[in-house]
């Protein structure tokens, strides 16, 4: 039955991958990457139970953190064209 959930998650990842390939704007692609990341977290969690090793949950949480930070970093890059400058000072 874990297998059914795994298949569902993998199908969703495929759909998100197709959207990432098609996606007319760069934001569609970022959205697809973010959705893939969410599904990956779930995939790791379910796969941990499926193979009887729930310790993989630690990896799932780390992946969730990386996914969030990565999305925000890419968005910041598309917005400002850089990651490290002090933007607070540029705005009046």
């Amino acid at each position: 039955m874990f297998t059914a959930a795994l298949i569902g998650i993998l199908v969703t990842m495929c759909l998100a991958l197709v959207r990432g390939g098609l996606g007319p704007t760069v934001f569609d692609r970022i959205l697809a990457v973010n959705a893939m990341g969410t599904q990956t977290v779930l995939l790791i969690a379910v796969a941990g139970f499926w193979s009887g090793r729930p310790e993989w949950l630690d990896l799932a949480l780390v992946y969730a953190l990386v996914n969030f930070v990565g999305t925000i970093a890419v968005l910041k890059y598309t917005r400002f064209g850089s990651l490290g400058e002090d933007h607070t000072r540029a705005q009046p």
């Binding site: 959930a5 969703t12 704007t25 959205l31 973010n34």
Partner: peptide, 28 residues
């Protein structure tokens, strides 16, 4: 488990079917 993965598939379907970024974000 099965209901959640079905909902996820529906969300993925929405990513493909809906017309623009704004609507697709709701599916995600």
């Amino acid at each position: 488990l099965v209901g959640g993965s079905l909902l996820c598939v529906v969300g993925g379907l929405g990513l493909l079917r809906l017309p623009d970024v704004y609507t697709r974000a709701h599916a995600a």
